[in-house]
Amino acid sequence: MNKEEILQCLPYSKPFLFVDELLEIDENSVSGTYTFDKSLDFYKGHFKDHPVTPGVILTETMAQIGLVCLGIYLTGNSESGVPGHVMLTSTAIDFMKPVFPGEKVKVLAEKIYFRFKKLNCSVQMLNAAGEVVCKGTIAGMVTNKMNG
């Protein structure tokens, strides 16, 4: 599968699609970018008059690029050739810096293991200055059903 095909397989749409572009992908790693649109609805409330991207959204962005795209790539290139769905099962993330509306971030992920349908990745997010804004590990089950 190429990068475009993977993006086509993503089960998200606006306002919950947090992948703009995949830069590189192979069996062991993936990188991609996303720019947080200033008009995203959650900025109105997080926080009142002081918009900052919520940590759960940063986590989701790392999961979509680092876990879901890699899971689709790995299953799409497997014997069955059927791109799977990825069900998030655990996250452990540390947050270092805020991400403000309009910022472009880059997510880098490396596979720790993919066994018995469980994909476990170490992930990190960098801002435009190349600083790490958050990092950790994210895991999910790659299934052939949408709800596991």
Binding site: T89, Y113, R115, F116, K117, K118, G140, M141
Partner: peptide, 26 residues
Amino acid sequence: INSANLVDVVLDLEEAFDIVIDNQSM
């Protein structure tokens, strides 16, 4: 135990006993 943690149980068993568990056994 959820299915994702069941995988961790199996990976921990592999390490603790120095064995390899195949898909069929899983």
